[in-house]
Design a binder for these strands. Structure first.
Lengths: 199, 199, 199, 199
DNA sequence: CATGAATGAGCCTTCATTCAT
DNA sequence: GATGAATGAAGGCTCATTCAT
């Protein structure tokens, strides 16, 4: 196994543990065990716990971004892209919810790592920004709004709504109506939106 | 000073320190110093560091919610309420940004406490939900959308956009166009929104 | 209440707590509460926790010695005095056993305070020594043995046997045959003792 | 050095320190220093200070019991066994007295650990009980007395007398007349004992 | 006098990091 | 390279003692 592959092994183990316990509560030994290696070996690949954490988060973000790009590339028009993004977020949040539930008392840690997801959002914003800019030029999105504002509307709405649905709904009622979600973003929540509809 | 007032004193100090350093990096001694009392005194009022943290966060949330309720109560129609909410969020985020900047290496800790703001969002959602429900019945908002979805759109968009503006803009360009923000939420980001406009 | 009476109040409270918890596990506050006074008040009467402990132990020893003297004075010949002493010890040990049982985890503390009883023994030895010396001169005890040795035989046997009986017997079988105990001490445990018996 | 050997090393160091300072006044660091290792290393071998203490005491008791068994096994008749036991106790008490004297203010701690010796006594009782039972069946000891009572007489007398001699005598006069000690136990302290003697 | 809120020295314990094997 | 035994810095928490009321 090459050095790079080994690092990835450790990243995978570290993601698991960091996400379920948070930075401080995670012991290097936990990660080593999870990766099936010795404690000292971790230090052959990473300078310190903090560096490992930073790189693990970066690795995580990169994975997320790559997956998102793939997911968006499959669709042509912006509505479909938004829907794809919402489905993607649902999956990510669900994965982490699962991790959190493993922990009985994950209050503090959930907080800490929850914020990593926030960070992801910022980065996803950059990916979406491209799609948004393109959609504006194609006449799919309002040209009179700052592209960043449109991106924020999409991102914010999706994150907020999906989190809510997953975290606070009973498992069987977690069905999210993605079409309506896209509709709310595209046509707005104001009453005029439907009074003016052509169809 | 009554016991309750003293606890509030400690809450204020604890908020400061917890928000700038995060839970784990905060030493009880730090909080005591900030409050101008001895280390042992903290333990006269709180069982443990964790309990102090939990109660401090609850205290913080309560303050936020109270302020938000006041801010919303000053306005009649939903557009103004959204604008008020956006201005309120701007202020909160600015305050925390300020705290983070005090710390040299606040990356990790910022993550942790950033999530507390997320938690606030969930709670703010409940406050907004009332306003939204009322606005729907007054015909200001679309009745065909789940109220929770509308709330998420407002909350998510505002949080995302304001965070972005404050965190990544140069100070002098932090001007946020609140009216446009409200417009994006109310009329949507899709191109139809403006093609159908009456004026 | 005079200063001396108040000190005695505190001694009584302190005995209770010290005997059930040991020196280190006892908090001044425990004693204050037990005595029905404030923590600070204890310091009006005693310099420090250690001093309070030393004086409490001395107070305890004095009480024991006084009671023992009274118990012994009631009897004329040495056999009866030994029996009286054995009954006295049974009572003391029972009292302390009771205290220990109040505590869930009294292992360590029992050790510590158990030794105070040992100390009592040394002092009781001095009281018994007088009775022994007198009994020797009255021809009741062997004149060819060092009085201290006789005292040790009485004290040691009684303490050991009574402790055993009380600590490790089922409550209902705690009956101690005091006459046989005295007999063992007076006539010895060797087989000759009975082969030579006159009766 | 094997794990078990290392634990024994720590036991030896811990015995030293616990016996001279008592449980509470002993710092883990003291033990580590005495054992020539780091503070954290102690925790590689023992869960907590309390566990280390309990196991150290058990280790001590085991050693004492083993040595006692060896000492008793060397002799045939019960008189010699009692003498051997008395010499054994003298040695143990002398060792601990030495430790106590190292400490200027060992009053409190001496108490605490002195009680460990008491505990030893209880265990030694079980060992002696065997020898006593055997001696009864061989006709060396009175069959009309409860074996436990005989054991208590031996144990109690020896412990009490030897402690007294060692603790309160000037070093040069510590000579203990073991034969007379055995005689007191075997023939009793009553005057009849000698009036009935055959010789 | 009596009180108990305030204090901070002190210690157990954890765990990132090192390094001999 | 890989390992895990050894280390000691660091921090939460306790409680004897003080002192303002």
């Amino acid at each position: 196994m090459s050095r790079e592959e080994k690092k990835n092994e450790i990243f995978r183990a570290a993601s698991q543990v960091f996400f379920s316990k948070g930075f401080e509560k995670t012991k290097i030994e936990d990660i080593a065990k999870q990766a099936g290696i010795g404690k000292g070996t971790v230090y052959e690949y990473f300078e310190s716990k903090l560096q490992l954490f930073e790189e693990t988060i970066a690795f995580y973000h990169q994975n997320v971004i790559n997956s998102l790009c793939e997911a968006l590339a499959r669709w042509e028009n912006i509505g479909d892209k938004i829907k794809a993004y919402a489905q993607f977020m649902t999956e990510i949040i669900s994965n982490h919810i699962h991790l959190f539930e493993l922990m009985a008392d994950s209050r503090v840690m959930a907080r800490e790592m929850g914020a990593v997801i926030l960070e992801s959002n910022i980065r996803m914003g950059d990916v979406l920004l491209e799609a948004v800019t393109e959609a504006i030029s194609k006449g799919e999105l309002r040209p009179d709004l700052e592209p960043r504002l449109i991106t924020s509307t999409i991102l914010g709405t999706v994150t907020q709504y999906c989190s809510l649905k997953i975290m606070f709904s009973e498992p069987e009622t977690q069905k999210i109506d993605y079409d309506r979600l896209v509709d709310a973003v595209m046509r707005g929540v104001g009453a005029e939106a439907i009074s003016n509809q052509t169809s």
